[in-house]
Structure formats: C-alpha cells, structure tokens
Amino acid sequence: MSEGAYKVVIPARHGASRLPGKPLLDIGGRPLVAHVWERARASRATEVVVATDDARVAAACREFGAEVAMTSNAHRSGSDRVAEVIRARGWGADDIVVNLQGDEPCMPPGLIDRVAADLAALAGVGVATLAYPITDRDQLFDPHVVKVVTDAQGFALFFSRAPIPWHRDEFLRNQSHLPDKVPFLRHIGLYAYRAGFLQQYVDWPPAPLEVAESLEQLRILWHGERIHVSLADEEPGPGVDTPADVAVVLRRLALE
C-alpha cells in the first residue's frame, strides 16, 4: 500500500435489533447505505467496500455502483464484519482500514481522511478514533452519547456512557451547567485500524467493562492496548438509530 493510502469498509447489517432493515431505509429517495457510501467515496480512500450479510442490501448496493463483500450473519459487531473482509481480501497487516458505520449518512469525508492520517502517523499504534468537544449539559448526561477522556498525548483513558470526567466539587454544587476549563469530549464512532491489529482484537473475548457499558472499544483498553483520540475539526452530522432520526438527517442533508 502506498504512503497515505487507506481503505474503507462499511458494515451494513439488515437485521439490526433497534431498527430492522436500516441500511435500506429511504432517505430522500435513496437507501441509507447509499448516502454513507457516497461519503466514503468523497474521501481519499483507495477502496470502499460495503460489508453485508443480506442479499437485499447487497443488491441495492450493487445497483448504485458499490463494491460489496458478503459476510457471515453470525457477527456480533461491525468490527467482526470488517475483520472478515480483511481476511477474505488478503489485506496486509499494516494496511489501514477505516470502519465507517453504515448508519452515518452525514459523516464529513474530511473526518474519514483525518482518522486514517492520524493512525498512519502513529508508529506502533493499532487503532485511532476521533472526539469532539461537548458544550451542552444535556449531551454530557445523555447515555446515548459516548464520552471519552484522554491522557496528555491523546490516548484514551476510558470511554463511558456516564458523564466523564466527573467534576466532584462543581457537580456537587450545581449540575445545571458545565464547569469551565474541563475537557468534556464526545466520542465519534469512526475508527481507523491497522488490519493486523483488528484481526487480533476480534479474537479476544468480550471484556467485563465492555459488557457493562455496551462499548466494544473498552475491550482494547482492557487488554492494555492503546487507542489514539484526535480532536475533530468539525462535528459530524446525525446518525440514524431510530425512525425519528430520519427526519433529522433529511433536514441536515437539505442544508448541505
């Protein structure tokens, strides 16, 4: 792989428990996964592959021109699906692969490039991701918004659905606003992996912290590995987790 080159895999599972058939949801006359694919195609990725376990999703993707990899329907996560694509295609251990979730139709292509470039610049690191500042109290206390705290070099210390860091004195007095000068960060669920590292990671059993928080990235920290977290220079648009999110995404796309 040439310097700076990377690949994108978009896991697109039809049988999502919260919103079955999500990749094929109509978003402005096109399936959701088509919008995600277009974001990846607008990045500098040298290859973009949609990984799915469903023939209906595969057919829809091929209709709009996407490259498709059929994967097992037994995978627990998108990471497992990406790892299967890596194995099937024989990608090298040092190849950089970005996992772009199939429900992110508003992900800026620049952030896809950014997370891949960040990992490429970090020798000996297996995974990189992004975060964005939290300035809203409701977002900090929302369990659907994942928070992250990092060390001085930008490596993740912990991810949580709870408000972290917890400012003991300020929150004891008042929880209606955010304390000043505290780096509250929202995790952006966009990952760049070295292919060899991802192959190892998916073979590890789920970690207790991962199960408790329902956050698979905690498996990496549990095993003593590092995740680099860079600060994104733009906020990603909304993803699609519920039927109500479709209207929000449509409004966002209309403004772009």
Rank of each mutant, 00 (worst) to 15 (best):
residue 204 W to K: 13
residue 119 L to K: 01
residue 17 S to W: 14
residue 195 A to P: 05
residue 97 V to N: 04
residue 149 V to L: 10
residue 101 Q to E: 15
residue 218 L to F: 06
residue 12 A to G: 03
residue 181 K to T: 08
residue 168 R to E: 14
residue 172 L to T: 14
residue 253 L to P: 04
residue 103 D to Q: 05
residue 40 A to K: 05
residue 150 T to S: 06
residue 30 R to T: 05
residue 76 R to H: 09
residue 221 L to C: 07
residue 52 T to W: 00
residue 6 Y to M: 07
residue 140 L to D: 10
residue 112 I to Q: 03
residue 101 Q to Y: 07
residue 176 S to K: 14
residue 80 D to W: 04
residue 190 L to Q: 11
residue 192 A to R: 08
residue 151 D to G: 06
residue 213 E to R: 10
residue 205 P to H: 12
residue 5 A to Q: 13
residue 141 F to N: 02
residue 209 L to W: 13
residue 92 G to H: 12
residue 45 A to L: 02
residue 221 L to E: 04
residue 67 E to G: 04
residue 198 L to R: 07
residue 197 F to C: 03
residue 216 E to T: 13
residue 185 L to Q: 08
residue 52 T to F: 00
residue 77 S to N: 14
residue 17 S to R: 14
residue 217 Q to H: 12
residue 7 K to S: 08
residue 127 V to E: 00
residue 119 L to E: 03
residue 150 T to F: 05
residue 128 A to H: 03
residue 113 D to A: 11
residue 240 V to L: 05
residue 24 L to V: 06
residue 158 F to E: 15
residue 153 Q to F: 10
residue 246 V to G: 02
residue 130 L to W: 06
residue 78 G to E: 05
residue 17 S to C: 07
residue 6 Y to D: 07
residue 130 L to V: 07
residue 50 V to I: 15
residue 176 S to I: 08
residue 246 V to C: 04
residue 232 A to Y: 02
residue 237 G to C: 00
residue 15 G to L: 05
residue 244 A to M: 05
residue 229 V to R: 00
residue 137 R to A: 06
residue 209 L to G: 12
residue 55 A to T: 14
residue 114 R to N: 02
residue 214 S to V: 11
residue 205 P to N: 11
residue 223 H to V: 08
residue 213 E to V: 07
residue 86 I to Y: 02
residue 170 E to T: 11
residue 63 E to S: 13
residue 152 A to R: 05
residue 169 D to T: 15
residue 118 D to Y: 04
residue 7 K to W: 06
residue 209 L to F: 11
residue 194 R to H: 13
residue 171 F to K: 12
residue 8 V to H: 09
residue 237 G to F: 01
residue 187 H to Y: 14
residue 246 V to T: 08
residue 146 V to H: 00
residue 55 A to E: 15
residue 34 A to N: 11
residue 212 A to P: 01
